[in-house]
Amino acid sequence: MTGSRDHGPLPVLLLALTVGTGLVDAFSYLALGHVFVANMTGNVVFFGFAVGGASAISWNSALLALGCFGAGAFISGRYGSARGIHRGRLLAFTCGAQGVLVTVSATPAAFADPARRDTRLVMIALLAVPMGAQNAVVRRLAVPDLTTTVLTLTVVGLFANRTPNEVRLRRVASILSMMAGALAAGLMLRHGRLAAPLWAAAAVLAVCAVTADRLRPRETAESWG
């Protein structure tokens, strides 16, 4: 798939998902104890720290996030590999399922104590599964420079490659979207309710699901299919 392919509204929707990722990952790191549910590179490093004796990091949290993320990617990858499925329908279904799990995970954040080990582990699992699913689907959608979670290569491409302004703008937008989500989550946790970033992420997912479904052309249409 090349950058010249018609992606329809997908770039805008993926930027919205990038904001959602910033919300969820900031919440998991700040409220669930030094663990990411979307950025698995960080968890691999955290697991190494914990095994090495770092007291502030939980190896089982990092390992649980990795396993549940992988499970979500596996399930979503099998669904997304079906031939003939429209990319809009695939994104709509995935965002809808993600929204349900993120909403469920917000319940213990609102009514329980995430500092408790069992509550924390349940929330990590509930959040890592949908983020793994999102990553698998985004790979299937194949919109250049919009991974929604991993920005390392995006930053490298921004500074190392000579690219058209449109490409550079897309990369900058991806970075700023993640930053905006993380900033919003940080402010919500500081001044609002603990579950606020998850409610906000669930709302973003719901909007993306409805928008992708409404804008999806007929299954036989070639446009961004």
Rank of each mutant, 00 (worst) to 15 (best):
D118W: 09
A82C: 08
H191L: 12
N165Q: 03
V104S: 11
I57R: 15
T211E: 06
R190S: 11
V167F: 01
A128D: 10
G181P: 01
A115T: 08
R116M: 11
N60V: 14
S177K: 02
A202W: 05
V156A: 10
G181R: 05
P9S: 15
A54E: 13
L14W: 05
R83W: 03
A82V: 14
R218S: 03
W59A: 14
A200V: 02
P11D: 00
M131F: 11
L187W: 04
I85Y: 02
C95P: 15
G52T: 06
L126F: 04
A180P: 03
L14D: 04
L198M: 12
D6Q: 06
Y79I: 15
V104G: 12
A200G: 02
C95S: 14
S28H: 09
D25H: 11
F36E: 04
A196V: 01
P217F: 05
N60H: 14
P9R: 15
G80T: 09
T149S: 13
V44S: 12
D145S: 09
L14H: 07
G132T: 08
I85P: 00
L66D: 02
V137C: 11
A133V: 13
Q134G: 12
F27Y: 15
R168A: 12
L146C: 03
R168S: 10
G186T: 07
L90K: 02
P144C: 05
F36T: 08
A110H: 03
G20V: 02
A160K: 14
G225D: 12
V204F: 09
A16C: 11
R89G: 14
A173R: 01
G225M: 08
V204P: 14
S61P: 00
C68N: 05
A73Q: 13
V156G: 00
R89E: 12
D213H: 12
T149R: 04
V44C: 13
R78Y: 02
I175S: 06
H7Y: 11
V204L: 11
M1C: 02
Y29F: 15
L32T: 03
E219P: 12
Q98S: 08
N165P: 01
A160L: 07
